[in-house]
Design a protein around this nucleic acid. Structure first.
Lengths: 237, 237
DNA sequence: ACCTGAACACCGTTCAAGT
DNA sequence: ACCTGAACACCGTTCAAGT
């Protein structure tokens, strides 16, 4: 039987959970999240679709695992998740870590959406979050304020923000601009001023580095101000 | 032929684009976004699946339309999208409008995800965004700052924020807590303090009204500060 | 003009079976 | 222990056809 050309078990490394997840990430990176199907992962691995089920429970588990791989990358990009015992520069330290997460997300444009659809945190993700909490704590913020801070940061904590698409259509057209000016005058006026449509930004409308950092700093500065206001009395627990 | 019981055309109002979209919204509200399929919408309307294609181009168009219905509700809840010519109280005015959007989103838990997946704005959505731009402008912010502000607000502008699920599992368990304390000590410490797990919040982890308003106000206050700093020189058009 | 039936090319997943 | 084949219950969508 070793003569049949179709035998795949020996011309391929054995299937493992790890290889399935890596393959899933690569597929999503190259072909997009819609192409991430059990059947296409199997095809990529030179294996029958049903074989995957021996190594992962179902598709959700593959998505969970893919997110875990992403946060493993974040850990590397971040030079580990160590939190200094005491850190006066919590703000810049946190800023750097979040921007590191962002560079990883830019490599995996599908990640924001998938992260967002997860119901619970895996270990790698939780360890990242833990490092954020720890860094804020090192800055003397109370756990209550830290909690609020993390809600305020939202997905920005993971290096991305969700934005909405552009107004309807090819807005180079003069007729379209005219119609926009009639229907949404304020929006049209703003676009006329800021017009920096950026089709390369895979994370959404104009979501380039500058805008991300602007929003991030607005929040971090606000938190710093709140901490200072809190300083007179000791940080709660 | 009028004797056959299966004739549906006369016992049902005629199919229209509007009825399709309303039906889609109701279905998503009651059965969840995963249940929103062409086939189930048709079933609900007492019609064959293929009939829908006469009134809408495809499923994406249905999702587009459903979002438009949501923002029509936002307009009603907001008492219209009028923008005052001049408004010293831009901050409270914007705050109120965004919180109105939020109450609508809470009625349609599927909306955040769908909104997020749209590639371009429909008219109703654009008119909402326009009213936000207009309100900020009435407060004297420059269009540049308004642009940054809208990125900073992100999905909060639409009344929601994306958050991540809870750490792994049933964290009432003492053994689980112990393991968490070992693996993610800072996170565990925070949770021990703030523990207000809210399973009813359909918009995500602890994303209750308070946290939403905290984050919103952090941003609005930051913007206000930036505007004041900008005041000496005239607002850049 | 409006709706339908049959068919196509996909999904994720089960279950019993192979080696 | 690890992989597979056949089958099931779904999808969205096309196309030609009915009334």
């Amino acid at each position: 039987m070793s003569s049949t050309a179709e035998r795949s078990a020996e011309r391929r490394a054995p299937l493992t959970r790890g290889r399935v997840l890596e393959s899933a990430v690569e597929l999503a990176d190259t072909a997009g999240i819609d192409a991430l199907t059990i059947r296409r992962i199997a095809e990529r691995l030179g294996v029958e679709p049903m074989s995957l089920y021996y190594h992962v429970r179902n598709k959700e588990a593959i998505l969970d695992g893919a997110v875990e791989l992403v946060f493993t990358e974040v850990e590397q990009a971040s030079g580990g998740f160590a939190v200094p015992e005491t850190d006066a520069a919590w703000k810049s330290s946190l800023r750097t870590r979040i921007l590191a997460a962002r560079t990883v997300m830019l490599r995996h444009p599908w990640a924001p959406g998938v992260i967002d659809s997860r119901t619970d945190l895996g270990l790698a993700t939780a360890r990242y979050v833990d490092s954020v909490v720890g860094t804020l704590r090192s800055g003397g913020l109370s756990y209550d304020l830290i909690h609020h801070a993390m809600h305020a940061l939202g997905s920005r904590m993971f290096g991305f923000t969700q934005e909405l698409g552009e107004p309807d259509d090819e807005s180079g057209d003069a007729a379209v601009m005219e119609q926009m000016a009639a229907q949404v005058p304020h929006l049209a006026a703003m676009l006329a001023v800021v017009r920096h449509v950026d089709p390369d930004s895979t994370l959404g409308w104009c979501d380039d580095q500058f805008e991300f950092e602007f929003g991030l700093d607005l929040i971090l500065d606000g938190l710093e101000r709140l901490t200072r206001a809190d300083r007179p009395r000791p940080a709660r627990s």
